[in-house]
Design a protein around this nucleic acid. Structure first.
Lengths: 177, 177
DNA sequence: CAACCCATGTAAATCGTTACATGATTTG
DNA sequence: CAAATCATGTAACGATTTACATGGGTTG
């Protein structure tokens, strides 16, 4: 899976500009995949050259002109091929967790501060997802709802496990208190 | 955070070869970060050139010679700088979830099959982590235990949410039955 | 004797981020 | 009038994966 596959998937729903695609990454999808303009525009170029999408230039008044891309039959076929390929292994890459993994080399209070900060940040993200759910829910497919729910619950468990871990860390050894 | 930071962190505990480092990625750490030989060896080379680690060649009988790397004071300082830098955003990149996100364009039974497979795979990973926990637990630091617990619980929720989602998906519309 | 473990490395290819570059219009 | 929105793109750089390349020793 790469940006080509995801962008083709997004275009299944209808023609879009690169700018609009970027905005679609501010949905539950962003929890599992994200792309910047620096990826989106070159990818659209590649997909067009390969014949998977076609560009239509739209001249606008009072706005910059835009390029609207539509998926072709070749593009749909390419997307089907992606779905036929074996799914890649999941990768939960977490800088914070790596730091925590090396926590034994730090002061207990330093690690505790890291964890508290991670909890706060996760709570913020959870609230954003919860607000997002209220907004997006009506237009989401059942499948997408599962994605959103997973994002929500993953954050909830993370908060719970970190809170429990913090408590254990602080009770385990009282040396510096 | 990149492989340099993680490898320095691993060497805080004592000198290691590239081969041994690779094996350390078969621990709870692999849940949050992984690296292949193609990353490890060039990274060790860079770290050595930068003076963050030093190499000692060890000649062995009946085995290929090995290069044992130790962290230097400059390396420890570099690791401290990494810890002082702001943690990067987490990235839960999931091919399966992306596919699920586009599930509305597939047959309901196809999506259900995807979900069932994901549940099975997650259960397998969960069991492996549980077995690993029994093995590693005695030698793990409190911080590392939090990492492991998070890995465990994240998998558990994922299974629960997918099972619930599957049930809803199948009950929501009975059209094809 | 096949398979696996030990052990190190290189090269090509792919992929992606960040920063740069531009510029009109609308909104507070 | 500053900031945000709309809108597209390029270039440099960095990171990583996969495959290739080698080869002796041990174990079942």
């Amino acid at each position: 899976m790469n940006s080509q596959d995801v962008i083709l998937g997004l275009l299944l729903d209808g023609p879009k500009t690169g700018y609009e695609i970027k905005h679609l990454f501010e949905s539950p999808l962003s929890f599992f995949f994200d792309a910047s303009f620096g990826t989106i525009y070159p990818t659209l170029g590649k997909l067009e050259k390969a014949g998977y999408i076609v560009k239509e230039s739209v001249v606008q008044d009072n706005r910059p002109n835009k390029n609207v891309y539509s998926i072709t039959e070749a593009g749909r076929e390419r997307f089907r091929q992606y779905l036929d390929s074996p799914p890649e292994k999941e990768a939960y890459k977490s800088d914070f967790m790596v730091r925590l993994f090396f926590g034994e080399h730090q002061e207990r209070d330093t690690v505790a501060a890291w964890i508290r900060q991670a909890i706060e940040q996760t709570k913020t993200e959870l609230h954003q997802l919860q607000e997002g759910k209220a907004v997006w829910k009506p237009e989401m497919s059942p499948s997408q709802l599962i994605c959103l729910n997973l994002g929500l619950e993953l954050n909830e468990v993370k908060i719970r496990v970190l809170e429990e871990g913090l408590a254990q860390l602080l009770s385990a050894d009282q040396a510096s208190d």
